[in-house]
């Protein structure tokens, strides 16, 4: 299985103000990692760097044996599925099925293999009934699940998700947690919804002002009130209730 290794990544946009500084971590087989931090901490930027949406960083990102760079972009992207925060920005074909089949067709898979991948992706996120539905007519929760299915059809080793729980009602949120927990492979989920991270990830990386403040067991980090508050976060709501 593929591993992902981030070695001392630093990145800044044009203003030369560092967005990420010396980020380093490693993720192994089957790990689910939560990237937490306040707004503007650099979570989404880090995810974008991991799929090579911006290559202007210093340091090294290694996916399996491949170092991410201009020449290896296609090979790396084949292994990584990226779920956008805004599902509307992710899907563009006319129906759910067409959108899910987009990646397998681009990777030159046969019609039979493409059909199989579509079927499997729909099953994995439990949306078989939405197969022929127009993407304009999906609800928020359906869109989120469909957008996950669009990357699952790539059969990725690593799945990155940017704020997957945003704008979901409790039922859809619970459904999404169940789906994510059923997924195999490395999962890296950026979110400031700490309850969501609590339910989906066993390991958490806390980022503040572009630096990793803490990397460890989710329960340990999310129970640390002082640590969270010092970095612009608060205890998960579920822990407040339990108290």
């Amino acid at each position: 299985m593929t591993e992902i290794e981030v070695k001392n990544i630093s990145f800044s946009y044009e203003q030369k103000i560092p967005v990420l500084e010396n980020i380093a971590f490693c993720a192994g087989t089957g790990e689910a990692i939560g990237l937490i931090g306040a707004n503007g901490a650099g979570k989404s930027t880090l995810l974008k760097l991991l799929v090579g949406l911006d290559l202007g960083y210093t340091g090294e990102i290694r996916v399996g044996d491949v170092v991410l760079g201009k020449k290896t972009l296609a090979a790396v992207r084949k292994k990584i599925g990226y779920v956008f925060q805004d599902s509307d920005s992710q899907m563009f074909m006319t129906t759910v099925e067409e959108d899910i089949a987009f990646a397998p067709r681009n990777y030159g898979l046969s019609r039979e293999e493409t059909a199989l991948r579509v079927e499997r992706a729909l099953e994995q996120v439990h949306i078989k009934a939405l197969r022929d539905k127009s993407i304009y007519k999906l609800s928020g929760g359906e869109k989120k699940l469909a957008s996950i299915a669009t990357v699952l059809s790539m059969d990725p080793d690593i799945i990155l998700m940017d704020e997957p729980s945003v704008a979901l009602d409790p039922k859809n949120r619970r459904n999404l947690i169940r789906v994510i927990n059923e997924l195999k492979g490395i999962k890296i989920i950026a979110s400031h919804d700490l309850d969501f991270i609590w339910d989906t990830c066993e390991r958490t990386i806390l980022i503040h002002n572009g630096r990793i403040v803490c990397d460890g067991d989710t329960e340990m980090i999310l129970r640390d009130k002082e640590l969270l508050e010092a970095n612009g976060l608060e205890l998960p709501l579920s822990l407040y209730i339990r108290r």
Binding site: R77, Y82, D86, Q90, M91, A103, N106, G108, V151, M154
Partner: peptide, 17 residues
């Protein structure tokens, strides 16, 4: 963002219909 989403799913300028 849509274009990024396409590129991340293997789009190379050709739509495979």
């Amino acid at each position: 963002r849509l274009y990024q989403s396409m590129c991340l799913r293997g789009f190379d300028g050709t739509f495979h219909l």
